[in-house]
């Protein structure tokens, strides 16, 4: 991962040419050459340069969404991250599949994108795009309502309620270990609920998706994050079912559904299987 290659060093804009800042070609993702939608041209590119626009590099049946990247400044501002996601989400919204690249993919120039990426991976990309055709990713983020969750736990567990009451009566310093114990008990109860609620999400929505990836929620109040690969034919059914579940849980769990998104969680698999089958 250490940029030892001369090409990389130049693109990163770090060492050599101080007076002439290095430039690169930022790559968002890959799509069918027939699906290149001009909508992305209106979006702010990664790097935020007003002189540049998002466009396409084409090779054979595939194309890459790219934009010139001015050098001299490291990437990674929140706007850069949003710009990357906006381009991919805009492409995903057109209904044609797009293979998203990880944030921060930069090549030397459009020629390098064409030769080193599109030409070399042409057939794999075509195959992966075919596999993902007619499907989009939806990511469900479920989080607990803190108060509702705690009330639920107290109602179920008289022992925890009792401990809480005794802790409340002690001076803060004296009750340190009891407080840790109280928190631990609550934490364990949350974990048990999380497991159960995650199962229900999988049970209700899993059958409506072609694939799913379940991740641990990134925050303490999270239930789970689940990415679903949903076929266009079943999208309405999927959304209805998810909403019904949100209704059942309306006072205890908040459900956020992101999508349609580029298949961030499924692209690696689509590429792997391509290799395996060929």
């Amino acid at each position: 991962m250490v940029p030892t290659d001369e090409k990389q060093a130049r693109v990163a804009g770090a060492p050599a040419a101080a007076e002439a800042p290095a430039t690169g070609c930022y790559v968002y993702g890959i799509l069918a050459a027939s699906a290149t939608d001009p909508a992305v041209e209106k979006l702010t590119p990664v790097g935020g340069d007003k002189e540049t626009r998002v466009g396409y590099v084409r090779h054979g049946d595939v194309a890459a969404a790219v934009s010139p990247l001015p050098g001299g400044r490291p990437l990674g501002r929140p706007e850069d991250l949003r710009a990357h996601a906006d381009v991919l989400n805009t492409l995903a919204a057109t209904g044609a599949p797009v293979l998203p690249f990880r944030f921060g993919t930069v090549l030397k120039d459009t020629q390098a994108v064409s030769d080193d990426v599109l030409a070399k991976g042409h057939d794999s990309f075509v195959h992966a795009l075919e596999r993902l055709d007619g499907r989009a990713q939806f990511t469900l983020r479920a989080t607990y309502d803190e108060e509702a969750l705690l009330r639920e736990i107290f109602a179920d567990r008289p022992d925890i309620t009792e401990l809480r009451e005794s802790v409340a009566q002690m001076p803060e310093d004296a009750a340190y270990y009891q407080r840790v114990r109280l928190g631990e008990l609550i934490y364990e109860s949350v974990a048990a609920r999380r497991e159960k609620d995650t199962e229900l999400i999988k049970e209700r929505l899993g059958p409506l998706a072609d694939a799913m990836v379940v991740s641990e929620a990134p925050t303490d109040d999270g239930v789970t994050d689940v990415a679903f690969l949903v076929n266009d034919d079943r999208r309405a059914d999927f959304e209805r079912t998810a909403d019904r579940l949100a209704g059942d849980w309306q006072n205890r769990i908040r459900m956020r559904l992101l999508g349609p998104l580029a298949p961030y969680d499924f692209v690696a698999e689509a590429m792997e299987e391509t290799e395996g089958e060929a």
Binding site: P74, L99, F101, G104, T105, Y264
Partner: peptide, 19 residues
Amino acid sequence: DLILDKGLVIDVYLRVSLV
């Protein structure tokens, strides 16, 4: 969450990870 650790990576030698 979506874009930093997911998505295709071209190739270790072609990819530039910025600071």
